[in-house]
Design a binder for these strands. Sequence first.
DNA 1: AGTGAAAGATGTCCGAA
DNA 2: TTCGGACATCTTTCACT
Lengths: 156, 156
Amino acid sequence: MDHLDGKLLDMLQVDGRMSYASLGKEIGLSVTAVKERIDKLQRSGVLKNFSIEVDAALVGYSVLAFVFIAIDRPEYCEEFENQILEVPEVQECHHVTGGFNYLVKVMANDMTHLEQLLLSRIKIPHIVSRSETTIVFSSSKNSSFVKCARNGSRDD
Amino acid sequence: MDHLDGKLLDMLQVDGRMSYASLGKEIGLSVTAVKERIDKLQRSGVLKNFSIEVDAALVGYSVLAFVFIAIDRPEYCEEFENQILEVPEVQECHHVTGGFNYLVKVMANDMTHLEQLLLSRIKIPHIVSRSETTIVFSSSKNSSFVKCARNGSRDD
DNA sequence: AGTGAAAGATGTCCGAA
DNA sequence: TTCGGACATCTTTCACT
């Protein structure tokens, strides 16, 4: 992965529909060379997939929350992760340092929905011993952009 | 936004390169009808943009952290948000409930880089009074998928 | 790794219902 | 909103450097 690959990844994150021709024009490569690089980035797993970004609020998820979870015993961790994988409203589940074991990011339609999710699917009896929920008022930044091109050469 | 729009959004989140023809085959609409719906979803802002997902670890971001931030005085919040917007390693910045004001998600190349980011760009003097950093060991789930289609009708 | 050219697939625009 | 058809553009493959 060199600097040109980084630029390709940055450009495609901004517009995943850019053609090989216009990508190539930006970095000075032919259509075929660009395609070959992108294919290779996909095969290596760096480019996980082509996608779209959806405005969660506009499709009805007006509540966002972060929930810290403490697990009763370490051997229950795998079971917890498996259960959480099944919950579509949970976008992220991180094993973390500190007084809790997991940090979970949850989307919900409203407070009632969040309450129901926490009670019925997240604070799993006999597995989760303690939890602490933080509600998001608003997000001044909420992207998934990963800067790939190193700075130092102009990218205009 | 009806059920078919929801299905389109779900399918495009999984594969943003699906052709109008194959999208149409799945939901029983013509190429033109699919294009018209997708254009409309973009205009309304529900579909924010076409993009790709990049594996952060594979491009060198091996450290992920969540940082709680307490702001000294409420009138410094805007300045904090503006400063944070400029930091590419900060993916998310949420105004939250609880003992802190903000929760920030940060990517870094390594621990040294994280330390440097915290000291030089996040724990801003005279604005940030207190912070608490949680390091991520591993993530069993880290997606940005937003389920848009309501359940009840089969989607095979 | 890179190139250009040809062929097939796809996006886009149109008039009509 | 939806459709099908016509045309422009893009993707993909190939032979070659």
